[in-house]
Design a protein around this nucleic acid. Structure first.
Lengths: 187, 187, 187, 187
DNA sequence: GCCTAAGCGAGACGGTACGTCTCGTCTTATC
DNA sequence: GATAAGACGAGACGTACCGTCTCGCTTAGGC
């Protein structure tokens, strides 16, 4: 039997990346992806369950290198730096695309797994690495779960990105990191 | 000249509430709201800039009483209880509607201010009250901004609600609260 | 309430006529009609049940004058002349469109009534007129039903047009007329 | 080298027959025929130019025995009986399939020859036999061409079947036969 | 009996039209 | 003159079928 064409997958993902750059998720319609990639709509729907899934995979692949993990020597410092970088990324046009993608997953249950696998997983693993390094050095509390820590550091940024109720400046990022590291209770 | 009808506003909001209950945001199309409320689409668009705005106002009005603030005596305990309650709320069908609404704000810039004003503002003020009470009692760190504190406590929940990468159970809610209150650093 | 737009109807029919001329029924896709007429697909589907219906109405309106009825003095001669003219029409490009339309009605039950009403009815009435004139003059058998007579004279042409098993020349048309008028039995 | 497989031909035709019975021509898609027969689409297209061709051959083979020719003693009576039988056949579900097949030939030039050869030819030859018998007995006009006679007798039925402008009852069939045999002119 | 070219199954693919949907604007007639 | 009713333009959606293609596997006939 003829195997699914790698070429098709790849040109779809490339075309989708380009479209996401040009106009965010709204520009990445299935028709547009089909037209630009030369891959038919029917074939796209055979490879992915929805356009959100395509976009998630395309965006995830591209963003793998967009926010490289820092290595400052201080593990806690690395976490702070990472929050700063991610905050900056979210404030950029690509951040808008990320927000659209995350929003689309709410509406499109079929796309959500793709988003988690191709976008979130990579990003979370990068932070998990920093966390484990910090743990080894005894800099962070070993009773806190990695997942909880990640959500604590980045959840606030994402909430702000989506609802726009507060800015995503460097200062705000640092305020969040500080509060997260030291806790809200009076010392 | 004839003033804009109060009756129109109210029946639109009532109809929208009903539709949100029945099928979440997707069910609250402008056509459906118009049909159910007996208010014409043109009139709806004179009162609100978009259907997201209508839904945000309708949902916010209704949810004002859905998560009453606790008063346990311990201010820190109140915050923890509040996170628990909100987490439970997010895990319910109404939480899905909240997620859809938040997601819609990403796509619909005109609706976002309505969402912030009619939904977020009330919710945040309720928590801000708890925070100020805790501050007065000296239970929490007075160097942490209220907004930062709120985002730290609820951002993680919202992130999980949207992307679905982790559950919204009572245990998870408590883990988040604990980590947020005591911080991530080793003690 | 706003009435259905006459303008929409008319530009759809005009665009469809043009497309039928250029490429027959296959060219008159709903997308093409929509694009050329400036009327949205949704609106087209509100006015007509299917593209066959649109094409039938457009083609019928145009063809009303394509085959004018003869008046030779002899009623029987008029019928013969009419068969000749129709045969010639069927042999032309417009005849192909007619065949495609008739064929489409087999597949599209919703379009068939439109074809009968907007195309056939007019054509049949024209022949019925000749028949009645012939009847008054006593030239034709008054025991034969008009409908039967019409089908006898034109059914053979249409059968040939569709299946292509025999030519549609003037000679063949005359042979059919002669046989139909005098009957198949030996004299 | 290796000859084309007879088995493939036969299972395709059998599967097509079954599909035609179940849902007429629309059910006999190439994918469906391939799936049911176990013969691949590529192979089907090596044996036939289009699905219409496959269907025509399958239907023709099956219908060879569906309308047996009558032998009443009177040649003219045989013709009348044949028209009656064919009319009845056209009014049955199989008649619908016939209509769909004939209609498909308009759109599919590659299929038309198959329809003429595998379906029409047989049917026409059966009637031609009756005609020649009648000729020998001097019952019919020897100046009328066989082809013309056949089209005169069956064209009206087919026209009605396709456009649905008149019923296909026994009475109508007889009215057509009578008119065809005796002619339209006043006696 | 082995070899090799073709036949063949499975189904992926590009293409193209379909008919549906929702949005937000526009047009009447009514009150 | 504000409304209810709903027609309208725009354009994406996901589906269907077509006819071509690309694979490996199978299977004769020629040596």
């Amino acid at each position: 039997m003829r195997p699914q064409s790698l070429r098709a997958r790849e040109s779809v993902l490339a075309a989708t990346c380009a479209l996401l750059h040009e106009g965010g998720l709204p520009a990445a319609t299935v028709d547009a992806i089909s037209a630009r990639s030369g891959v038919s709509k029917a074939t796209i729907y055979k490879h992915w369950p929805s356009r959100t899934a395509v976009a998630a995979e395309a965006f995830g692949a591209e963003m793998a290198h967009a926010v490289p993990s820092p290595d400052t020597g201080s593990a806690a410092g690395d976490l702070a730096e990472q929050v700063r970088r991610v905050s900056e990324f979210y404030a950029s046009p690509a951040g808008t695309t990320f927000a659209q993608l995350l929003a689309a997953c709410v509406t499109d249950p079929a796309g959500a797994p793709y988003f988690r696998e191709f976008f979130l997983a990579g990003r979370r693993e990068a932070v998990a690495l920093l966390w484990r390094r910090a743990l080894e050095r005894g800099e962070v509390d070993d009773e806190v779960d990695v997942e909880t820590a990640i959500d604590m550091l980045f959840g606030p940024l994402i909430f702000r990105l989506l609802s726009g109720h507060a800015p995503l400046s460097r200062e705000e990022a640092d305020a969040i990191t500080t509060a997260a590291l030291h806790g809200l209770l009076a010392r």
